[in-house]
Design a protein around this nucleic acid. Structure first.
Lengths: 221, 221
DNA sequence: ATGAAGCTGACAATTCGCTGACAGACACTG
DNA sequence: CAGTGTCTGTCAGCGAATTGTCAGCTTCAT
């Protein structure tokens, strides 16, 4: 899962980023409105955490411009405490959820999970695909009810494919979501990762559509 | 189920009460500390929802006096957000759970249900995980019945993991709960703490899922 | 048939978590 | 006030798990 964190205070940004990274997300940071707008408009994120009150372009304007351009990724807005007017304005601007500052990191994670789930159309904390079940809260994957020992990277891949079940996911998209900005990796790293996963979960767990990408779930040609 | 709601703001009290009543609970309201203490000490409730910052006797003192008198009904404390010191003090005073304000009513209900379930399940005060038993009231941990001398920080870690048994707790979450917003500590501090604990409680007490976090209880693999 | 795309096993580099030693902060005691 | 002991953060080094890379192989589409 790839997140964009828009926050101008470097220290706060580092803290939040650490928490999100610890929860298994790939986090990129934008420190001002211009940059945030550009990244949000051109890149593909699973969630954007947007702090209002930025230098440069105002956070609310950034959000409005994204929505105006038809970008509809989930956006979680961090607001000042008790600012009701801001909330209302934000709802109109197209925010998906709010978190008044200061907040518990745990709550940020819970809301992030909820938003990501909702955005891809699943209501439950556990996603079931064929013989697999993915518990996004315990970060555990079971095959026919038997829990599997997955490494963090493996889990992130399964989780992403599970959230986008029945859809072909191009390798480039997967690389972006797994590795973020870091382009240093060989394309083969992903293939090796898939191979290791299939060995653990069974060959049927992840399908390949040659020339297009990988998928989980039903996707017969 | 009979609940006591301790809240001085009449409007907020009415709102919360309506929600709880709607969920099928019988709700009584105490608007100040003296009254709350009297009711909690003489009546029998399945759960007490306690807002701190009351007129008259302070909420924390009320809680301490209840516990001092041997009353051990579950208490859910509503705290100001981000007040780490308050939380720690509350743990010591004997609170069973926390909810930072403002909160979603849905979450209040969920936590209330969990607390009530837990309290009827096994006497509330002790959590048993494998060879460990954690007496949350006496703040004492035993291994196979043998009491262990734990330092305050060690106890807080065990207690937190015990309350979240069978769940992977990411290191960032633990750091937040142990150290509050102060992220200046080296990540290694937590690891050192875990190492010391394992030396006291036995290596099996706390498990590690590399790349994910720590856990107590069943969580293989 | 043939080249491209994808798979796989082996190996190496890197990261992560554990541990023992040490030091500063603090409280308690004589 | 000095001395002592406890608690906890920091450091450095070790071992192991994780992950990237490479080379050769298989499969597929045209």
């Amino acid at each position: 899962m790839r997140l964009l964190l828009v926050e101008d205070d470097a220290r706060i940004a580092a803290d939040i980023s650490a928490v999100l990274t610890g929860a298994g997300y790939t986090v990129e940071i934008a420190a001002d409105g211009e940059n945030a707008w550009f990244l949000g408009d051109t890149e593909d994120y699973d969630l954007i955490v947007l702090d209002l009150g930025l230098p440069g372009m105002d956070g609310m304007s950034v959000l409005k411009r994204w929505r105006g351009n038809g970008r509809h990724m989930p956006v979680l807005v961090l607001t000042a405490r008790g600012s009701w007017a801001e909330r209302v304005e934000g709802i109109d601007a197209g925010a998906d959820d709010y978190l008044p500052k200061p907040f518990q990191f745990e709550e940020l994670l819970a809301r992030a999970r909820a938003l990501i789930r909702r955005s891809v159309g699943h209501g439950a904390a556990t996603i079931a695909v064929g013989p697999l079940s993915i518990d996004t809260r315990a970060m555990r994957v079971s095959v026919n009810g038997v829990p599997q020992a997955l490494t963090p990277l493996e889990y992130r891949l399964v989780s992403y494919l599970g959230h986008h079940r029945d859809r072909i996911v191009p390798p480039t998209e997967l690389q972006e979501h797994l590795y973020g900005d870091d382009f240093s990796r060989d394309a083969n790293a992903l293939e090796a990762l898939v191979a290791r996963l299939r060995k653990k979960l069974g060959a049927v767990a992840i399908g390949t559509r040659r020339g297009f990408g990988y998928y989980m779930g039903e996707n017969a040609p």
